[in-house]
């Protein structure tokens, strides 16, 4: 669609775009039915932006996130990350790009069981081929950065939920990616711990990292500089958080754990 391109151009300003999408569509074949998860999404995200992507279940926001995170391919359209067009990259080149450019933070942390925090954080560096000694030092630095410098030898079952998510954030940061991609990062945390994690995200964003948060949660989304709202595989609003006009957000009553107003099956229509 791209009807909001003029609107978001003012955020992009003179900064280089980290993410550029042009008319991206994604169609799944489910039995005899074709599911149009994305119906032509165009957007640009500049370096250092703090963006929230919101939308109901089935709005296509997970698909958009998978494509941004290089875990899925667009059916059509162009997607470039830091100027690198990804459509024709091999599976392994995509893996390298993911390793270097994107730090993932998941709702359920996705830490390896019975593995110390330091080992968890070293993992992306292992796949990047960083020598052990350097990897160890960088992992310790990343853990210190998220305030876990004292608990590097603790295993997930010895850490609180908030601490586990910090380990996950350290793991996302350790390769010094250009984008931090967080999927419901506070979804499995109590509200106080959630606030602390969001404060950490804020801090990291202020230090310059591009932050993309996918969420249902109004309270979380409203902390972003810019909110992109999806419905039925299209961007229906893309605006700074301060002058929010998202129909999704206005339909919800309040912040914590707000449920989407739009039924999931709409996407199948």
């Amino acid at each position: 669609m791209g009807k909001n391109s003029a609107e978001h151009a003012e955020h992009a300003d003179d900064r280089d775009p980290v993410i550029t999408m042009r008319d991206v569509t994604k169609t799944y074949q489910m039995g005899a039915m074709q599911v149009h998860a994305l119906r032509g999404v165009s957007l640009e995200i500049a370096a250092g932006e703090y963006v929230a992507i919101v939308g109901a279940s089935g709005s296509g926001k997970s698909t958009l996130m998978n494509i941004i995170g290089l875990l899925d391919w667009p059916t059509s359209g162009a997607y470039a990350i830091n100027g690198v067009e990804v459509a024709r990259l091999s599976k392994n080149r995509l893996a390298d790009l993911r390793n270097r450019e994107i730090g993932f933070v998941f709702q359920r942390f996705h830490l390896l069981p019975r593995t110390t925090a330091r080992r968890q954080v070293e993992l992306p560096l292992f796949y990047a081929g960083v020598p052990d000694r350097t990897a160890r030092r960088r992992a310790l630095d990343a853990l210190a950065q998220v305030g876990l410098g004292e608990r590097v030898d603790h295993r997930p079952d010895e850490l609180s939920g908030g601490q586990q998510q910090r380990v996950a954030i350290a793991r996302a940061l350790v390769t010094q990616p250009s984008i931090l991609l967080a999927d419901e990062p506070t979804g499995a945390l109590d509200s106080q711990t959630g606030k602390e994690v969001m404060a950490l995200f804020h801090e990291l964003n202020e230090q310059g990292i591009t932050l993309i948060v996918v969420t249902h949660d109004l309270g979380i989304a409203s902390q972003a500089q810019r909110i992109i709202t999806l419905r039925d595989g299209e961007i229906i609003s893309d605006a700074p958080a301060a002058r929010q006009t998202s129909p999704f957000l206005s339909a919800s009553t309040n912040g914590q754990g707000a449920r989407p107003a739009i039924p999931a099956q709409e996407v199948l229509a």
């Binding site: 875990l71 599976k91 392994n92 390793n99 998941f106 996705h110 390896l112 796949y127």
Partner: peptide, 16 residues
């Protein structure tokens, strides 16, 4: 399965 998915997200190749 989820461990393998995570390793892939973190940049693991097929060979890895």
């Amino acid at each position: 399965t989820s461990e393998i998915g995570l390793r892939r997200a973190l940049g693991a190749h097929d060979g890895d």
